[in-house]
Design a protein around this nucleic acid. Sequence first.
DNA 1: GATGAATGAGTCTTCATTCAT
DNA 2: CATGAATGAAGACTCATTCAT
Lengths: 219, 219, 219, 219
Amino acid sequence: MTTTGTESARADGEGRGRRRGGRSAALPSERREHLVRLAADLFAEKGFQATTVRDIAREAGILSGSLYHHFDSKESIVDEVLSGFFDEVLAAYRAAVDRGGDPRETIAELVRIAFGTLEPHRAAITVLQNDWAYLKGMPRFAYLTRVEQDVEKMWVDTLERGQRSGVFRADIDARLTYRMIRDTIWVAVRWYRPGGSLRPQALADHYLKVMFDGIVTHS
Amino acid sequence: MTTTGTESARADGEGRGRRRGGRSAALPSERREHLVRLAADLFAEKGFQATTVRDIAREAGILSGSLYHHFDSKESIVDEVLSGFFDEVLAAYRAAVDRGGDPRETIAELVRIAFGTLEPHRAAITVLQNDWAYLKGMPRFAYLTRVEQDVEKMWVDTLERGQRSGVFRADIDARLTYRMIRDTIWVAVRWYRPGGSLRPQALADHYLKVMFDGIVTHS
Amino acid sequence: MTTTGTESARADGEGRGRRRGGRSAALPSERREHLVRLAADLFAEKGFQATTVRDIAREAGILSGSLYHHFDSKESIVDEVLSGFFDEVLAAYRAAVDRGGDPRETIAELVRIAFGTLEPHRAAITVLQNDWAYLKGMPRFAYLTRVEQDVEKMWVDTLERGQRSGVFRADIDARLTYRMIRDTIWVAVRWYRPGGSLRPQALADHYLKVMFDGIVTHS
Amino acid sequence: MTTTGTESARADGEGRGRRRGGRSAALPSERREHLVRLAADLFAEKGFQATTVRDIAREAGILSGSLYHHFDSKESIVDEVLSGFFDEVLAAYRAAVDRGGDPRETIAELVRIAFGTLEPHRAAITVLQNDWAYLKGMPRFAYLTRVEQDVEKMWVDTLERGQRSGVFRADIDARLTYRMIRDTIWVAVRWYRPGGSLRPQALADHYLKVMFDGIVTHS
DNA sequence: GATGAATGAGTCTTCATTCAT
DNA sequence: CATGAATGAAGACTCATTCAT
């Protein structure tokens, strides 16, 4: 269990039990996970709203009504997509930060983690990019905002620690810098093509180089 | 400029249907421009698809059908929003590049122009960020892709010129770097609040500092 | 004045005065007649319902609202088209019948009159053919049914007179025969092209030949 | 037969979307056929355009949206009505013509077939009469024109064969005559009342009498 | 006479969702 | 588990008509 997802807002004490009034099982059967993956790709490709429940069903080779045996709404499908992503990235971030050590190395680690999600969570990140404005307006997805704040805190703390220890310039704004880093990384999902010549870790290295030392030559 | 825009808006000759050069937006009346601005804000706030034609009309204090006296479709409204933005930014970019001079200064200029659009074209940029995936799938908005390529060429050319002249590091990928710069700037629209303490040009300066010299201290 | 048209149902005693509550002038100005002709052609080409008031206005080079200075409704435009046709054809029929004489010659005369309307009243006849079902459902056009009955009576009377006098076969049904003749003539409007090689009177002659003597050779 | 029909109905795979031969109507279920019949009657009575999708649904006792479970558009409903008619009449015509034999008898057969459709395909013929102008303007119904030409060829060929063999007068125009016959028969749908005293075959006999031998008495 | 802006009722269509079988 | 039929609310758009200027 993690701190994200719909269930985190309720204390149902049931572990991996049933959500939303005992309707749709959260138990990840293989079938279910497969459907979530299909849906995620469609959401990423066409946007959440533009993807119909029929699109998803067709992709799965069933009728739209049958989807409701697995999920109780279209929303609960994205929810599963997004919380899956957040569960993983949050855990990895937390581990990196908790390891402590050189702030420069911690930031590098966070950057690598972020770039590392580009491939396995491509769809989730894309949805987050494109449908954020729409989703954040729904009570169900209020947790997105909460998670975002937690993440921001981790980065900003590390950056400021680096500034205090003199490894990062003091004349930059930590929060501003974090936002730029975050955006730059995840927005890459828009043009990054998995399986292309550019591996995420090569991207990370390129980015770290630029971020740490700038694009200007230093004699 | 009008290198952007699309083919059809108000196909019938009723009302203000004449188009400049037969290409892009119709003759702008004050009323029309006002409506475009209202719509742009709604599109930015809720997304293009989630914004109904009734939302726009309600905001304008008229009935939804009445909107069709001014525009022939919801699409043609976004079109006007987007091409207005592109016309302006393209012209500014072109002027900066044509002025020639030191690549570092040209890039700085481009960055300042980009940040400078954040305030007046906040809505257009937001729409572009959030609804890009949806819009680019429509034939009408094929020009978006074309314009994007033109812009990319201007930046990449300038960056490479700087690399050849030794002012920029040779070990970075110009296209990759451009994309990161572009995304970083425009994605800022997501958290940038006009009228806040951070003026766009302060942002630009901050960003230039980081981009040129990195976040690491250099003795 | 005739027995057709909207005014025939009211006794306004005003001659060519104003119809429908004194709104729209029935006075045929040249402009007005021109507009009616434009509208008639559009109605014929696309059907009454499919022709919008904007189509008509555009054809006339004005805006749709401006049409309402000439007519008080779209219906009143078709009304003018149709009653113009009926006024003329009814008068001609009546004259032919009143002339009396050989029933065979009278029928031939009626046939020629009918074919003769094909060119000048092409549009009206087309509308009648295509939109009859729709128009007859409207109280305003109840007179269409009345006129049809008057016409039928004239033909049937003449045919029966011919049967009694032995010039027409007694073993055919007069009403049935009339309907076939009528339909055959007016439905020709669907393929008859004015200005083509087939003049209406040649058509009439062809038809009379077939109708009187059949298509089978008689030794 | 299925030489008629069009391309798309129920593009999505949901529900009964498979089409016979990939061309024309979708798999007919009883429900579907019932709905088509209801719609056909309404189209005939009020015209295609004047019949709303709600009219059809109300007649079927469902909501208008539910119709889209069976058909993908209002157009595809008429399409089914019309191609059902054409499939049948074309096949019957073809069989009669292929049987060869005396041209006079073949023509008589064609006439009887045509009159025979009056009762079972009353609605389709009415729609064809009234909405032809509107429908032929739509790409989807281009096949109507093609079928019409095929039919014309069959009749004209037979008539000309009869002229060459001396059974039909040489001084009539075969195409013109065909058109008159066709129109006369099908336009009868306008006044023919099924279940009335006049059976279609009695009509056919009456018509054959007139057509073959004319209405004039021959000593 | 004409314009331009607006109305308001209505059109076809879409879609998430439900539920009996 | 899945189907097939249906719901119901909403969406974009159309169009005859009105009216102040």
